[in-house]
Simulated assay, not measured.
Amino acid sequence: MNFNPKKKASNIILLISAFVIVSLILWNTNSFFKNFKEEERLKMEIWATAQLELIQSSVDQELGNLTLKVMGNNTSTPMILVNEEGSIKTHNISAEKAADSIYLQRKIRQFESENEPIHIIQEGELLETLYYGNSEVLNKLKYYPLALLLIIFLFGAVIFFFFKTNKASEQNKLWAGMAKETAHQIGTPLTSLLGWNELLKSEKINQDITKEIAKDITRLETITDRFSKIGSIPDLEVHDIVSETEKAYEYLKRRSSKLIHFSFTSDIDELPVLLNPPLFNWSIENLVKNGIDAMKGRGNITIEIEKKGPNVHILVSDTGHGIPKSNFQNIFNPGVTSKKRGWGLGLSLVKRIVEEYHKGKIKVLSSSKEGTIMQISLKANV
């Protein structure tokens, strides 16, 4: 496995640079928002001054026209003008809403929270109070930092999942490499064992002994074949799911303790399914062995096959101590195990074989102190 520290460092630098750029954009937007708000405040103060000039110069036509021109330039900022008697005038608010006193009172409170009111004073006497809200442009700009923060969050989430997926991919390559190397290492002594067994047969040794050795050699060949398939897409062919499951069942039954009671049931005689038999049998064996470990070598193991619609379900049950519901998904992750000396690879391999290679599903159907039922679901080839 080739781990590239330079590539990892460049990814970190790229991530930091991206966050710095986005942070600068956020800071710049916030500064722009404040400056724009100050600009609007200045315009409102000019408008208030024009309003005062209008009151003072009602006889001066020229000054009145200039004042009206200044006041008429504001067509975007909503305003409510309240005089000392409580009379209300509105600007840039629709006539229908301006006629609703409750709406205007609510707007006054809103404008007061957004911007400090401007008092129009003449010779120490309060004539009018100007309440104004944010313009439409400012309102849109106000939510821009929130949108940018959301973008930062989504960007961070994408980067996080990218690194997580990349790490998982590297781990998968590592395990696949180890599996293939194991298969390669087993191959050499296995060839030697085949030769020695043939030699023993020629020496007229008890045939039962050589037959059992041949069975174990065949078993080692199967294991080698399984490990060699990890990390590559295996070939799937049509096989009878019932007979293939029963083969795995019989093998385990013969080689397990007499304290384990095995049972096998099926509601169908045969059913064609696209399978890779060595890998499928490996999945069944892993589930059964996990069940035996959960029962501490004493209890009942049941394998059931049932067809429901287009799918066939293989149920592997044990009478072990059960799995907490919170761990129903976690147990399929690499490294998760309840065994003191376990590697936590068995169920993760089963999940990969079932879901990635056979396009099926595996899950904990149920679990309690009385036992656990694991379910493999595959699509029937009919």
Rank of each mutant, 00 (worst) to 15 (best):
A95I: 13
Y103M: 05
T77C: 04
K97G: 05
M71S: 05
W47R: 05
L68H: 03
Q51I: 06
G86Q: 04
T90V: 07
Y103A: 12
L54Q: 12
L63V: 15
L66W: 09
A99K: 11
A48Y: 03
K89Y: 06
T90F: 09
A95W: 03
K89G: 01
N73I: 15
S101A: 12
T49N: 11
N92R: 05
G72F: 08
S94P: 06
S58L: 15
I46N: 05
N92D: 03
T75I: 14
N74L: 05
L42C: 02
L81D: 00
N73T: 15
W47E: 03
Y103W: 13
L54C: 01
K97E: 12
I46G: 01
E85M: 10
G86D: 03
A98D: 07
E45I: 10
M71H: 06
T77A: 05
K97L: 15
N65H: 05
W47V: 07
K43D: 10
L81F: 02
N83I: 09
K43A: 08
K43T: 08
V70G: 00
K69M: 09
E84Q: 13
L66P: 00
I55Y: 06
V59T: 14
S87H: 07
S58D: 15
V59D: 11
N65T: 07
I46T: 08
E39F: 11
I55G: 02
L54D: 07
I80W: 02
A50F: 05
E84G: 07
I55A: 08
N74T: 06
S87M: 11
M71R: 12
Q56M: 13
T75W: 02
M79P: 02
A95M: 10
H91W: 12
M44F: 01
A50Q: 04
S57P: 00
D100K: 06
N65G: 00
S58Y: 15
A95F: 14
T77I: 15
K69I: 11
G64C: 06
S101W: 02
N92Y: 03
G72N: 15
E40P: 00
G64E: 09
S101P: 00
E62D: 14
E96L: 13
E84M: 08
Q61K: 14
E53Q: 14
T75R: 14
M79H: 01
V82T: 06
H91Q: 13
E45Y: 02
E40N: 10
H91P: 00
A98L: 07
D60A: 14
M79L: 15
G64R: 14
T77E: 02
K43W: 05
Q56A: 14
V70N: 01
I46S: 04
